[in-house]
Design a protein around this nucleic acid. Structure first.
Lengths: 197, 197
DNA sequence: TCTTGAATATATCGGATTGGAATAACATTT
DNA sequence: AAATGTTATTCCAATCCGATATATTCAAGA
């Protein structure tokens, strides 16, 4: 499941443009897939070359022209082939958790800010999901039950994250505190200087 | 937080090799960060060039030689600088959820197999986390409280995933069933032919 | 009015990353 | 002895990211 397949799948729910696909991926489909403009536009070009989608330029009132892509029957075949193999493992890159694993190298203030920031983001995300953002974005063309499953999955994960972080943040804050007081970094005086930059 | 920073962070917990970093990322740190050999080895080369780590070749009995990397004091400064900025949003690419959003294009058998496969993987992962794999892998040099937080976070997420999938898989299976029976694909007879490939 | 900023929309480029293949040394199994 | 598996590194083309550039429209404000 690369960017090209994801674009094909999104287009299968209704004709759309590269810009709209990107907005979908950074909003409602955030916890499913992430891709940049620099990968989406070339992917749409390849899909067009291969005959899996057609491209028609549409002028809009009040906005720049956009290129609208629509699925072809060959594209529908390619989509099914891309959905059929057993899904591989999730690929995750969490800067938050990676940083928290080294909370003992940061100050309690830094760690606290990072946690508060993360909680705020998750609360906003949860509100959006509970307001049915994903449902509204996909039920017109996708399947309502499948959309409900995916939407509920995201909401469940975020609720579990929020609860866990709130209940266990003391572990991180104590780790950061200790590094200030117990002399773990005493042999590396340059560390504190860097932090105050 | 790119591959280079992650390598630096892992090396800060104790001198190690590229191969061992990879094994850590596909095991205990699976839900934190993912990187391939093709990015790890060049990253270690750059870190060495920049003087953030030192590299010494070690011969082993019964195994090929390995290059062991150790943190320098300049590397410790670079590590802190890479941990200090506010962590960005998690980057997730879930083939499973992306595929399930289109469950209505697959057969009930395919969807059921994919769900069962996912449940098995999560059960194995949970067992490993509960057995303290992450703890054992990192507590020697990292901070025990921070490690406990991250390890518990992963276990909590997996438990929530397992429960949600078990409770709601019927949504996906009904979506797949409907696509077979209600004529959604009646106008695209080539679909079923492809599925039987 | 002018212009600054924000949103929409696409394109492009260098550098980072992926996924796979190639290489090689040793171990274990057949 | 041969085949297979594990450890360990290297290389490469295809892909992808992050940033920047370009252009249009609209709203706010100096």
């Amino acid at each position: 499941m690369n960017v090209q397949s994801m674009c094909l799948a999104v287009i299968s729910m209704g004709e759309t443009s590269g810009y709209e696909i990107k907005k979908l991926l950074e909003g409602p489909l955030q916890h499913l897939f992430d891709a940049s403009f620099g990968s989406i536009y070339p992917a749409l070009g390849r899909l067009t070359e291969e005959g899996h989608v057609t491209c028609t330029e549409q002028s809009q009132s009040g906005k720049p022209d956009k290129k609208v892509y629509a699925l072809t029957s060959a594209g529908r075949v390619a989509l099914l082939n891309s959905l059929s193999p057993m899904p591989g493992a999730d690929r995750v890159r969490s800067e938050f958790l990676s940083t928290m694993l080294f909370a003992h190298l940061l100050t309690p203030g830094q760690v606290g800010e990072m946690i508060d920031h993360r909680l705020e983001i998750y609360r906003g995300l949860l509100q959006a999901l509970e307001a049915g953002v994903l449902l509204n974005a996909t039920t017109d063309f996708g399947d309502p039950a499948a959309t409900e499953f995916v939407s509920g999955y995201g909401a469940t994960m975020i609720r579990a994250s929020l609860a866990y972080i709130e209940d266990n943040r003391h572990l991180l804050e104590s780790a950061a505190l200790l590094s200030d007081d117990d002399g773990r970094n005493r042999n590396a005086p340059e560390l504190r200087a860097v932090q105050s930059k």
